[in-house]
Protein backbone atom coordinates (compact mmCIF):
# COMPACT_ATOMS: atom_id res chain seq x y z
CA UNK A 1 0.00 0.00 0.00
CA UNK A 2 2.77 2.38 0.90
CA UNK A 3 4.61 1.48 -2.25
CA UNK A 4 1.66 2.22 -4.42
CA UNK A 5 1.16 5.51 -2.62
CA UNK A 6 4.77 6.41 -3.29
CA UNK A 7 4.43 5.45 -6.92
CA UNK A 8 1.34 7.58 -7.21
CA UNK A 9 3.17 10.54 -5.76
CA UNK A 10 6.08 10.02 -8.11
CA UNK A 11 3.88 9.82 -11.18
CA UNK A 12 2.27 13.05 -10.15
CA UNK A 13 5.59 14.75 -9.75
CA UNK A 14 6.59 13.42 -13.13
CA UNK A 15 3.40 14.81 -14.59
CA UNK A 16 4.22 18.21 -13.20
CA UNK A 17 7.64 18.15 -14.77
CA UNK A 18 6.87 16.87 -18.23
CA UNK A 19 6.03 19.05 -21.15
CA UNK A 20 5.24 16.25 -23.55
CA UNK A 21 1.55 15.61 -23.60
CA UNK A 22 1.68 12.02 -24.78
CA UNK A 23 3.97 11.17 -21.92
CA UNK A 24 1.64 12.88 -19.51
CA UNK A 25 -1.24 10.82 -20.83
CA UNK A 26 0.76 7.69 -20.29
CA UNK A 27 1.59 8.72 -16.77
CA UNK A 28 -2.05 9.27 -16.00
CA UNK A 29 -2.91 5.94 -17.52
CA UNK A 30 -0.32 4.33 -15.27
CA UNK A 31 -1.80 6.16 -12.33
CA UNK A 32 -5.19 4.78 -13.30
CA UNK A 33 -3.76 1.33 -13.24
CA UNK A 34 -2.17 1.86 -9.83
CA UNK A 35 -5.42 3.10 -8.42
CA UNK A 36 -7.23 0.21 -10.01
CA UNK A 37 -5.17 -2.27 -8.08
CA UNK A 38 -5.26 -0.24 -4.87
CA UNK A 39 -8.46 -1.84 -3.55
CA UNK A 40 -6.93 -5.25 -4.17
CA UNK A 41 -3.95 -4.55 -1.93
CA UNK A 42 -5.78 -2.58 0.71
CA UNK A 43 -6.71 -5.76 2.45
CA UNK A 44 -10.42 -5.91 2.03
CA UNK A 45 -10.24 -9.34 0.52
CA UNK A 46 -10.95 -10.41 -3.00
CA UNK A 47 -14.69 -10.42 -3.25
CA UNK A 48 -16.27 -10.50 -6.66
CA UNK A 49 -17.47 -6.97 -6.26
CA UNK A 50 -14.03 -5.66 -5.46
CA UNK A 51 -12.66 -7.45 -8.49
CA UNK A 52 -15.30 -6.04 -10.79
CA UNK A 53 -14.71 -2.57 -9.45
CA UNK A 54 -10.97 -2.90 -9.92
CA UNK A 55 -11.38 -4.20 -13.43
CA UNK A 56 -13.80 -1.50 -14.44
CA UNK A 57 -11.56 1.13 -12.94
CA UNK A 58 -8.52 -0.13 -14.79
CA UNK A 59 -10.32 -0.45 -18.08
CA UNK A 60 -11.78 2.99 -17.84
CA UNK A 61 -8.96 4.93 -16.37
CA UNK A 62 -5.93 3.34 -17.82
CA UNK A 63 -7.23 2.17 -21.20
CA UNK A 64 -10.37 3.83 -22.49
CA UNK A 65 -9.88 7.37 -21.36
CA UNK A 66 -6.16 7.62 -22.20
CA UNK A 67 -6.94 6.16 -25.58
CA UNK A 68 -9.48 8.80 -26.26
CA UNK A 69 -7.24 11.58 -25.05
CA UNK A 70 -4.47 10.28 -27.28
CA UNK A 71 -6.82 10.43 -30.25
CA UNK A 72 -7.73 13.98 -29.40
CA UNK A 73 -4.08 14.81 -29.11
CA UNK A 74 -3.31 13.32 -32.48
CA UNK A 75 -6.13 15.16 -34.08
CA UNK A 76 -5.09 18.51 -32.67
CA UNK A 77 -1.51 17.98 -33.75
CA UNK A 78 -0.19 19.44 -30.54
CA UNK A 79 2.75 17.71 -28.92
CA UNK A 80 3.87 19.83 -26.05
CA UNK A 81 2.52 22.04 -23.38
CA UNK A 82 4.35 25.26 -24.09
CA UNK A 83 4.90 28.05 -21.66
CA UNK A 84 2.78 27.07 -18.73
CA UNK A 85 2.03 29.79 -16.23
CA UNK A 86 4.54 28.21 -13.90
CA UNK A 87 7.60 26.65 -15.51
CA UNK A 88 8.18 22.92 -15.28
CA UNK A 89 11.08 23.25 -12.88
CA UNK A 90 9.14 25.49 -10.57
CA UNK A 91 6.20 23.15 -10.92
CA UNK A 92 8.21 20.27 -9.58
CA UNK A 93 9.38 22.39 -6.68
CA UNK A 94 5.81 23.45 -6.00
CA UNK A 95 4.84 19.81 -6.23
CA UNK A 96 7.28 18.99 -3.50
CA UNK A 97 5.90 21.83 -1.45
CA UNK A 98 2.39 20.54 -2.04
CA UNK A 99 3.54 17.14 -0.88
CA UNK A 100 4.66 18.67 2.39
CA UNK A 101 1.42 20.56 2.71
CA UNK A 102 -0.54 17.36 2.19
CA UNK A 103 1.57 15.62 4.75
CA UNK A 104 1.02 18.42 7.21
CA UNK A 105 -2.71 18.52 6.69
CA UNK A 106 -3.04 14.80 7.03
CA UNK A 107 -0.89 14.73 10.14
CA UNK A 108 -3.04 17.41 11.70
CA UNK A 109 -6.20 15.62 10.72
CA UNK A 110 -5.19 12.28 12.03
CA UNK A 111 -3.33 13.39 15.13
CA UNK A 112 -5.97 11.84 17.35
CA UNK A 113 -5.58 8.44 15.77
CA UNK A 114 -1.83 8.74 15.89
CA UNK A 115 -1.38 7.08 12.53
CA UNK A 116 -0.32 8.83 9.37
CA UNK A 117 -1.73 7.09 6.38
CA UNK A 118 0.62 7.37 3.43
CA UNK A 119 -2.13 6.72 0.95
CA UNK A 120 -4.19 9.51 2.44
CA UNK A 121 -1.21 11.80 1.92
CA UNK A 122 -0.98 10.54 -1.62
CA UNK A 123 -4.67 11.21 -2.06
CA UNK A 124 -4.32 14.78 -0.90
CA UNK A 125 -1.21 15.19 -2.94
CA UNK A 126 -2.92 13.94 -6.08
CA UNK A 127 -5.81 16.25 -5.41
CA UNK A 128 -3.51 19.22 -5.07
CA UNK A 129 -1.46 18.20 -8.08
CA UNK A 130 -4.61 17.92 -10.12
CA UNK A 131 -5.72 21.37 -9.08
CA UNK A 132 -2.22 22.71 -9.66
CA UNK A 133 -2.15 21.27 -13.16
CA UNK A 134 -5.48 22.76 -14.07
CA UNK A 135 -4.44 26.11 -12.69
CA UNK A 136 -1.03 26.40 -14.27
CA UNK A 137 -1.41 24.71 -17.65
CA UNK A 138 -2.87 26.21 -20.74
CA UNK A 139 -3.89 23.30 -22.93
CA UNK A 140 -7.42 22.04 -22.56
CA UNK A 141 -6.06 18.54 -22.76
CA UNK A 142 -3.79 19.10 -19.80
CA UNK A 143 -6.70 20.43 -17.86
CA UNK A 144 -8.64 17.28 -18.56
CA UNK A 145 -5.63 15.30 -17.40
CA UNK A 146 -5.42 17.45 -14.31
CA UNK A 147 -9.02 16.69 -13.56
CA UNK A 148 -8.36 13.02 -13.95
CA UNK A 149 -5.48 13.26 -11.49
CA UNK A 150 -7.67 15.17 -9.07
CA UNK A 151 -10.33 12.51 -9.38
CA UNK A 152 -7.71 9.86 -8.77
CA UNK A 153 -6.66 11.72 -5.66
CA UNK A 154 -10.19 11.76 -4.32
CA UNK A 155 -10.54 8.09 -5.06
CA UNK A 156 -7.26 7.27 -3.36
CA UNK A 157 -8.19 9.27 -0.32
CA UNK A 158 -11.53 7.53 -0.20
CA UNK A 159 -9.90 4.12 -0.35
CA UNK A 160 -7.34 5.00 2.26
CA UNK A 161 -10.04 6.14 4.61
CA UNK A 162 -11.77 2.86 4.10
CA UNK A 163 -15.02 4.65 3.65
CA UNK A 164 -16.54 2.27 1.23
CA UNK A 165 -20.04 2.50 0.02
CA UNK A 166 -22.04 -0.21 -1.50
CA UNK A 167 -21.01 -1.65 -4.80
CA UNK A 168 -23.66 0.19 -6.72
CA UNK A 169 -22.64 3.56 -5.45
CA UNK A 170 -18.98 2.90 -6.17
CA UNK A 171 -19.87 1.82 -9.66
CA UNK A 172 -22.02 4.88 -10.11
CA UNK A 173 -19.20 7.12 -9.03
CA UNK A 174 -16.85 5.45 -11.47
CA UNK A 175 -19.38 5.79 -14.24
CA UNK A 176 -19.91 9.44 -13.51
CA UNK A 177 -16.21 10.14 -13.61
CA UNK A 178 -15.87 8.23 -16.79
CA UNK A 179 -18.71 10.06 -18.50
CA UNK A 180 -17.30 13.33 -17.29
CA UNK A 181 -13.94 12.77 -18.82
CA UNK A 182 -15.51 11.29 -21.89
CA UNK A 183 -17.46 14.49 -22.32
CA UNK A 184 -14.30 16.47 -21.89
CA UNK A 185 -12.71 14.39 -24.59
CA UNK A 186 -15.58 15.05 -26.97
CA UNK A 187 -15.40 18.68 -26.26
CA UNK A 188 -11.69 18.65 -26.93
CA UNK A 189 -12.51 17.59 -30.45
CA UNK A 190 -15.01 20.42 -30.74
CA UNK A 191 -12.58 22.92 -29.35
CA UNK A 192 -10.03 21.83 -31.86
CA UNK A 193 -12.58 22.15 -34.65
CA UNK A 194 -13.80 25.55 -33.62
CA UNK A 195 -10.62 27.24 -32.55
CA UNK A 196 -7.84 25.35 -34.33
CA UNK A 197 -6.04 25.10 -31.02
CA UNK A 198 -6.72 23.77 -27.58
CA UNK A 199 -5.26 26.61 -25.57
CA UNK A 200 -7.70 27.56 -22.90
CA UNK A 201 -5.86 30.74 -22.04
CA UNK A 202 -7.43 32.14 -25.16
CA UNK A 203 -10.82 31.22 -23.80
CA UNK A 204 -11.72 34.63 -22.53
CA UNK A 205 -14.54 35.80 -24.72
CA UNK A 206 -16.89 35.44 -21.79
CA UNK A 207 -15.95 37.94 -19.15
CA UNK A 208 -17.34 40.92 -17.35
CA UNK A 209 -14.51 43.23 -18.18
CA UNK A 210 -16.58 45.10 -20.69
CA UNK A 211 -18.65 47.96 -19.34
CA UNK A 212 -21.99 48.88 -20.87
CA UNK A 213 -22.65 52.31 -22.20
CA UNK A 214 -25.78 53.09 -20.28
CA UNK A 215 -27.12 56.56 -19.84
CA UNK A 216 -28.44 55.69 -16.44
CA UNK A 217 -25.00 54.78 -15.16
CA UNK A 218 -23.13 57.95 -15.81
CA UNK A 219 -23.37 60.54 -13.10
CA UNK A 220 -25.16 62.98 -15.34
CA UNK A 221 -28.38 61.13 -14.89
CA UNK A 222 -28.79 63.19 -11.77
CA UNK A 223 -28.73 66.39 -13.71
CA UNK A 224 -31.66 66.46 -16.04
CA UNK A 225 -31.73 70.17 -16.77
CA UNK A 226 -29.99 70.02 -20.07
CA UNK A 227 -32.52 67.58 -21.39
CA UNK A 228 -35.36 70.01 -21.56
CA UNK A 229 -34.97 70.38 -25.28
CA UNK A 230 -35.36 66.75 -26.01
CA UNK A 231 -38.70 66.63 -24.36
CA UNK A 232 -40.03 69.69 -26.04
CA UNK A 233 -39.03 68.23 -29.32
CA UNK A 234 -41.07 65.19 -28.56
CA UNK A 235 -44.21 67.09 -27.77
Amino acid sequence: MNNIATLLALTSLFLLGSSRLSLAINMVAFQGFLIGILPLVSGHGFTLEVLILAATGIIMKSIALPHMLRKALEKSGTKREVEPYISFGASILSGILLLFVSGWIVSRLTQDEGIVSSSLIAGFFLLFTGLFTIITRKKALTQALGFLVLENGVYTAGLSLGSEFSFMVELGILLDVFVGIFLMGIMLFHIDNEFDHIDTDRFDALSDLELPDLELLNGNVLNLDQELDEEEGAE
Binding site: L131, I134, I135, Q143, D201, D204, S207, D208, L209, L211
Partner: peptide, 17 residues
Protein backbone atom coordinates in the same frame (compact mmCIF):
# COMPACT_ATOMS: atom_id res chain seq x y z
CA UNK B 1 -13.76 44.47 -8.75
CA UNK B 2 -14.82 43.60 -12.24
CA UNK B 3 -11.43 42.18 -13.04
CA UNK B 4 -12.49 39.30 -10.86
CA UNK B 5 -14.53 37.83 -13.68
CA UNK B 6 -11.84 37.93 -16.34
CA UNK B 7 -12.70 34.82 -18.25
CA UNK B 8 -9.56 32.82 -17.42
CA UNK B 9 -10.56 29.32 -16.48
CA UNK B 10 -7.46 28.37 -14.59
CA UNK B 11 -7.77 31.33 -12.29
CA UNK B 12 -11.35 30.40 -11.65
CA UNK B 13 -10.15 27.04 -10.46
CA UNK B 14 -7.55 28.87 -8.47
CA UNK B 15 -10.32 30.71 -6.61
CA UNK B 16 -11.83 27.39 -5.64
CA UNK B 17 -8.49 26.01 -4.52
Amino acid sequence: FRGFQHGKLHLYIFYIA
